[in-house]
Design a binder for these strands. Structure first.
Lengths: 251, 251
DNA sequence: CGCTACGTTGATCGCACTCAAGTATAGTGG
DNA sequence: CCACTATACTTGAGTGCGATCAACGTAGCG
């Protein structure tokens, strides 16, 4: 149609792949769950981390691998996917710098339940699960912070269960786009641009739908003037309208 | 049809409603996340709890209420339900003695996201969220344990998201019954009896379906000889067959 | 014994999945 | 710079699972 452009995403340019450089301390000290620790404590914690870089599409780990590390994103984007024997996957989350993933509990899960894949150039900091556990016991404030974040993720997952149970694809897609906008949105001339490679397939795996159906609903949203979208990108142009579409009627 | 019986559930008889009696220490010391603490520590923690009893059907709290307490089940069953404007609810979980629910994080959620309702005579121990937070910071081992449990619940919620996204109602129901059997099952002459009042509605709200569809699939399961069921109760009579029905094909 | 809530069964309908055949985009190598 | 190819996206037609609406059976309680 008329007003579609080509790849306005800037992530690969904006985020230089600086994984080997030692701004690790800088990154660690900005982590939400290390706030409150002294610089010295963070420096000490820092020694237990190892950094690792990933190209777009590379896997950080696969579901079923022995779960031995907690990882924190320094730069880039990572998606978490639950697999299925029949090839229909579920995209659990797209993570941004400062977020952790992987193995929280050494006792609990022996293997990863999901696959972690880099969406862009990504730098990940890794910590052995046992070291993480020691860290939690030494700094209770960190443990509480991690618990807070995990509890919030549980809330979000439960909300998603609810939506899958009661809402139409259209509503779930609108909701998902809004959430992505909040988390990854960057205002610009295209509207609120979702700063990550985002294919129809990804949206299908986030909403429990199919590529074709998502494509149809996206076309509809675009016709209504609520979004703009192209190959692997989406921008929200009419937030309020999308919110209305995501809202549930009282009936 | 032929072989249906009437209410084999024994919960109300087996669990005397002993909420006012002070076996609280006993109960607290058996909690998974207090293991490792000394009797004296537990006695001290005990002072901050208040007990409260509920009749079947009574509400422990409503979604939207200010979230000020962490609660632990001493005896009975509590279900957690997320509401919906249109009346289609989602049953998140059925909790048994020793399990906690409510407000984990004082900072985070100001109000409860779900409603908690007693299914049977139930005794609940309540702790102010602030006191819980202090407890977590004082006993890091407890914090780690709570984190473990929360992380596991997150895994389960994500698994449920996956199932809602890819599986049929029949498969989801089979899976749900198996999970309930594991958690609440009691072997007897009827098979593995799920020891809690469990209506078709509840199963519908657990699987993201409707009463009518659940009724149909339950009839089918019964005809196959996999379960027995009546008003508000279910027993599994052929575990392996149910497992096969819950399993996902490779292609 | 009747009332209420729970459960069953049938008929119909529509959302979204599936299969299929296209078009557009971006990266690649000449 | 442009053809070439791979991958992403679009659109159409047909189908089926499960929701909805409706009516009736059944258990248990007061």
């Amino acid at each position: 149609m008329a007003s579609r452009r080509k790849t306005p995403l800037q992530i690969d340019i904006v985020e230089p792949h600086a994984c080997t450089i030692d701004l690790r301390l800088e990154i660690l000290s900005r982590l939400p769950f290390f706030e409150g620790l002294t610089a010295e404590e963070i420096a000490q914690i820092n020694r237990h981390f190892r950094e690792e870089g990933f190209q777009p599409g590379e896997y950080v780990y696969y579901a079923g691998d022995p779960a031995r590390h907690l990882q924190v994103i320094a730069t880039g984007r990572v998606k978490l996917v639950r697999h299925n024997l029949s090839g229909k996957n579920v995209l659990l989350d797209i993570l941004t710098p400062g977020e952790f993933f992987g193995s929280l509990s050494p006792a609990e899960d022996q293997t990863y339940a999901e696959t972690a894949q880099a969406l862009t150039m990504t730098c990940v900091l890794r910590l052995e699960t046992a070291a993480f556990r020691i860290l939690l016991e030494r700094y209770p404030a960190v443990a509480v912070k991690v618990l807070d974040i995990t509890a919030r993720r549980l809330q979000e997952a439960q909300e998603r269960v609810r939506q899958l149970s009661v809402n139409s694809v259209e509503r779930r897609l609108a909701y998902t786009l809004l959430k992505l906008g909040e988390k990854l949105g960057q205002a610009g001339e295209m509207g609120l641009l979702i700063q990550t490679p985002l294919a129809r397939d990804d949206l299908a795996e986030m909403t429990g739908s199919t590529t074709e159906t998502i494509s149809r609903v996206m076309s509809q949203f675009q016709k209504e003037g609520w979004i703009q979208s192209g190959r692997q990108w989406v921008a929200i142009t009419h937030l309020e309208a999308l919110r209305a579409a995501a809202a549930e009627e009282i009936e």
